[in-house]
């Protein structure tokens, strides 16, 4: 009998509380729900929509499409330089190596270290900075697409080339030097690839289109594996070496060239534009998008030594 009374009372109480909770939550929803949810972004405004739609539906001949940049100069020049880290070189954490291949994916029993930000302790050079010309009006013979292939190897569950830049038309030889299978997954805006690579075999992939920024390369079997891949329409691109140096030869001289600089450790995911605010960057009018413009004289050999503060690399 007592249990019954207790149950009934608690039931009434619970109901009271439930109803009250329901009511309050609903009131909350009422208050918040009716407001325009900021985090969902704005909705279109009819007036601008009408105006823009008018522009889209009117004839397409409003503008003579200029397309590619117009060549203004002659001859060729070379840009070389180095990215130097200003700060204490960061310690890379080991990869989160898991699963049955743990032993095969380790070096001397230790998981390999990440390569997000590699700084050479001697020269303080930053490796794997990508620098490329956004739009070239003229392309030198040596920078034209060729049929050389680029070896993209993986061993001990590490992509041996951390950033693979290439010219559209070249082939990427995806090699597996491990005794177990991998798969190589490229998720680009325009290049998508996901194929399994058996042990000690090689596949080829020929990107058909250029990417505006490097895109990620992953292995689903070993999800910690990470690399980047950048196909460009011409050979005017470079990835800095271990000492942070790069060279782009035979760029068109006598015209304004816009370079884009990218590094993996910038931005939210898959890297981002490297933005510099140092004096030498200011003199190049380095933009918020990690771009700078430069004009080289014929046969000039320009050297750019750029200091990169730790804060620019998310440090």
């Amino acid at each position: 009998m007592n249990t019954h009374i207790i149950l009934t009372c608690s039931g009434l109480l619970v109901r009271c509380r439930l109803s009250a909770a329901f009511l309050s939550v609903v009131c909350f929803l009422m208050v918040t729900g009716c407001q325009r949810a900021e985090e969902l972004g704005p909705v279109a405004e009819p007036a601008s929509v009408a105006e823009i739609r008018q522009a889209f539906s009117s004839g397409a001949d409003a503008l003579a499409s200029d397309g590619a940049a117009i060549a203004t100069g002659t001859g060729w020049a070379t840009l070389r330089g180095q990215f130097v880290y200003d700060g204490t070189p960061p310690q890379m954490k080991p990869y989160d190596v898991r699963g049955e291949d743990r032993a095969k994916c380790s070096r001397a029993g230790k998981a390999p270290l990440q390569e997000t930000l590699l700084v050479d302790p001697e020269t303080m050079g930053i490796a794997n900075v990508v620098i490329f010309i956004r739009d070239a009006a003229r392309v030198h013979e040596s920078a034209q697409p060729n049929d050389e292939s680029i070896v993209f190897d993986q061993k001990e569950c590490v992509f041996l080339t951390h950033v693979a830049a290439m010219t559209v038309g070249q082939t990427l030889e995806i090699k597996n030097s491990d005794p177990m299978g991998h798969n190589t997954k490229i998720e680009g805006r325009k290049n998508v690839f996901n194929q399994s690579v058996p042990a000690n075999e090689t596949l080829v992939f020929s990107p058909q289109k250029e990417e505006p920024v490097p895109v990620s390369v992953a292995c689903s079997i070993h999800p910690w594996m990470a690399a980047y891949f950048l196909p460009r329409a011409n050979g005017y691109h470079a990835v800095t070496g271990a000492d942070g140096s790069f060279e782009i030869a035979n760029v068109p001289a006598g015209e304004v060239l816009e370079f884009q600089v990218w590094h993996e450790s910038v931005g939210a995911r898959d890297g981002g534009p490297l933005v510099l605010e140092t004096p030498e960057a200011k003199s190049l009018k380095w933009s918020r998008k990690g771009r700078f413009k430069i004009r080289l004289e014929e046969n000039e050999e320009k050297v750019l030594n750029l200091t990169v503060p730790a804060s620019a690399l998310g440090g």
Binding site: V43, I52, A55, A268
Partner: peptide, 24 residues
């Protein structure tokens, strides 16, 4: 909005992107 935030598109462009999409 995930894309807008991750791509670091300045927030001022959100309304304009929305309008262009609305037009198209």
């Amino acid at each position: 909005m995930v894309e807008a935030v991750v791509r670091e598109t300045p927030p001022e462009y959100s309304q304009e992107i929305s309008d262009v999409l609305g037009a198209m």
